[in-house]
Amino acid sequence: MAKRQVMFTFPAELIKEPIIYNLGHKFKVVTNIRRADVTENRGWVVLELEGEEADIEQGIAWVTNKGVRVDPVIGDIVEG
């Protein structure tokens, strides 16, 4: 089993969709929310995904395809 810590950023049109719920149901991935801030037109969620490496990858690809931006929770690490 692997764990991945990520940040999802949702555009306005996806705020009302149960994306995280669906992620947990469509893929064998456990979603564990740690921090979040969602307003009417924007939202972000910091969460940990747990599952097999391949399932996590497929889950992230599906979420990205939906229009959610997925970033590592520790930010960009390629520094100047």
Binding site: D71, G75, D76, G80
Partner: peptide, 24 residues
């Protein structure tokens, strides 16, 4: 805003081209 939304960097100042700043 209180939230720093990530961007795709495009600048000649490459050493500060970070789109998703950890300490933003």
């Amino acid at each position: 805003s209180l939230h720093v939304h990530p961007v795709e960097p495009d600048t000649i100042a490459k050493s500060i081209a970070i789109g998703n700043p950890a300490d933003g």
